[in-house]
Design a protein around this nucleic acid. Structure first.
Length: 582
DNA sequence: GCCGTTTTCGGCCCGACTGTTTTCAGTCG
């Protein structure tokens, strides 16, 4: 049982307790424990094996929850959860995901109207049975039916790379308006989360009407979902060619808030979040006899100067915290360090060590990729086309690969300002062998080992394959290693502790793959790898010259993990980088 | 259920908006 699974059990229990009308703070305790566990670098199983008393040193975990964790690890289940699941059908819990329905309303639907499934809910809404109930009306009924439909098209999170340009466009347009003094993205876009649930935009304006009207009448807006004096929520039409990680079309929603200019800093801090980060900042304010809300920082009735985020954090005795770190994971500990290292910047990166050409599934020639990398200021690159197993991409066998490398070697003679490595993205096959023989790999400057196939294998086999690749003396890097390719499949999560230990021993690096569709090595895993002393490499996995621009998305992920330039290997010069290779 | 420079009880972040209400509870972020 890994951390994510244990956290999930606590979250499920919290949902069920809410439906049972349990004390809200008790529910919150379970949720906060789930978050703590989810973002923990060490495995709870290891912690308990060492000393179960250590559990109570974790924030938000006391005697009771520590006992429950031990029970979960010992029995694989959680007694109060099993008992509640007997009583409350899974569909009833799903009803909580319908906008407008919270625990109180769902409890009434279940206990008083005896609706046990989504089908029964739909029928009852269609027959008008729900609006007869006190506290429910026609609107609620309609929003239930709409919500059920939305529920059917699940997975409404978008990649940052798709969502951010969209948010940037709206912000730029708002800034053109006369009454708008400042505007910014907030929320998860500003925090550079890898996927985005909805967009938040904040506006400072003398009067809110112009900005609100503008958004409401925007040609891309499908529906105004709610509108008040200062706050408006809209749904956009499905964005063309824009899909969720699950491949669904999505109608993105946006929250807009309009505040007076003197409140912009406080509001930006507040709406950037995360929620968990803000709970802490508000508590810190409280401890100092202050009140922090989206309108400013107050001592009693008196407004303290806080027009910028910097001033707000200063009042809490903190340095300004970069939005990427604001998840209440490690930023407050980071802020306390006196010799706080600067987070990685895009400009720190000198090399890009994962890209494709027309030899396999890329769209540009070797020469075009070299030129594109030069024009972007890269000092070194690796050409890493696919190995033969990836037949769909015209993967290279030994003969074609050797010819490909000969061509690269010939071309690179002509360049003195960029170092071009002969590389390969070599598949780790289902039987844990590599897709190319060792004598071929030995000729490469740079070998990336990756999993593409057999991802539904039992996790033990996947773990074996990764370990075998790490122990192959010719492998330099594990490409898109955690592969939520793997982790995304429930029950297939791989415990990475062993993998990281082996990689550290063998001197194998780990990749943050900036390609937006990879969703790989998340900030927690990146931090774990760093803590194991593993050099991290940020690559684009570009399939075209334009793909080389993606490097920034990997940088965001690294910043969220709190990585500095020292933690990342391709911040080195080409010469220093080559010294890292075994 | 957790936590404590307010320390073993009594707090726990807080404001906006909606819908169904005649003054507010529930939901949301």
């Amino acid at each position: 049982m890994n951390n994510a699974e244990i956290a999930d059990l606590f979250d499920q229990l919290a949902d069920l307790l809410e439906l049972e009308g349990a004390n809200a703070f008790r529910v919150r305790a379970y949720r906060s424990a789930a978050r703590t566990i989810d973002s923990l670098a060490d495995s709870l199983a290891d912690l308990v094996a060492e000393d179960p008393a250590l559990l109570q040193e974790l924030p938000g975990i006391g005697k009771d929850l520590a006992g429950k964790i031990v029970q979960i690890l010992r029995t694989g289940g959680l007694e109060p959860l099993d008992e509640l699941m007997q009583r409350i059908p899974a569909d009833v819990v799903t009803m909580l995901r319908i906008p407008g329905l919270g625990p109180k309303k769902v409890a009434i639907l279940f206990h008083e109207l005896h609706l046990k499934s989504l089908d029964e809910l739909k029928l009852a809404a269609e027959q008008g049975l729900i609006s007869q109930r006190k506290g429910f009306g026609k609107k609620t009924e309609e929003s239930i039916l709409e919500g059920l439909q939305q529920l059917a098209s699940t997975g409404t999170r978008l990649y940052l790379a798709d969502a951010k340009p969209f948010a940037d466009r709206i912000v730029a347009e708002l800034l053109e308006l006369k009454s708008v003094e400042q505007a910014s993205s907030a929320g998860s876009v500003r925090r550079r989360r890898e996927t985005i649930g909805d967009l938040d935009v904040l506006v400072a304006a003398s009067c809110s009407d112009e900005a609100m009207d503008y958004l409401a009448g925007h040609p891309l807006v499908e529906k105004v979902l709610a509108r008040g004096e200062t706050k408006q929520r809209v749904r956009f039409k499905p964005i063309p060619r824009c899909f969720t990680p699950d491949g669904n079309r999505v109608g993105l929603e946006m929250d807009m808030r309009v505040v007076p200019e003197e409140s912009f800093g406080a509001a930006l801090q507040y709406f950037t979040g995360s929620k968990e980060h803000n709970v802490v900042t508000r508590r810190l304010a409280q401890q100092r006899g202050l009140k922090l809300n989206e309108y400013g920082l107050f001592r009693g009735e008196e407004r303290l100067p806080a027009r910028t985020e910097e001033e707000i954090y200063a009042a809490l005795d903190l340095p300004w915290i970069p939005p990427e770190l604001r998840e209440n994971r490690h930023e407050f500990a980071w802020a306390e360090q006196s010799d706080r290292p600067a987070l990685l910047e895009l400009a720190d990166l000198q090399g890009d060590l994962h890209m494709h050409t027309t030899a396999t599934d890329g769209t540009a020639s070797i020469e075009e990729m070299i030129e594109a990398a030069r024009s972007r200021g890269r000092k070194y690159i690796a050409i890493t086309d696919h190995s033969r197993r990836v037949t769909m991409a015209n993967g290279l066998d030994e003969a074609r690969l050797r010819a490909h490398w000969r061509e690269i070697r010939k071309l690179r003679e002509h360049y003195s300002d960029i170092d071009v490595l002969c590389g390969i993205e070599c598949d780790i096959l289902e039987d844990a062998t590599l897709d190319l023989p060792d004598d071929v790999l030995a000729e490469a400057d740079w070998v990336i080992a990756v999993l593409h196939y057999g991802l539904k294998q039992p996790r033990e086999q996947i773990r074996k394959r990764l370990l075998a690749a790490i122990r192959n003396p010719h492998v330099h890097l594990i490409g898109h290693p955690t592969g939520r390719l793997i982790g995304a499949r429930p029950g297939a999560e791989v415990d990475f502790d062993d993998i990281f230990k082996a990689a550290a021993d063998e001197g194998v690096m780990m990749e943050i793959n900036a390609h937006p569709a990879r969703l790989d090595l998340d900030d927690i895993h990146a931090r774990q790898a760093r803590d194991h002393g593993i050099p991290i490499v940020i690559n684009t996995d570009a399939h075209s010259p334009h793909g080389l621009d993606l490097l920034e998305w990997g940088v965001y992920q690294a910043r969220r993990a709190g990585l500095t330039r020292q933690d990342v290997a391709n911040t080195r010069t080409s010469k220093e980088f080559r010294k890292l290779l075994r």
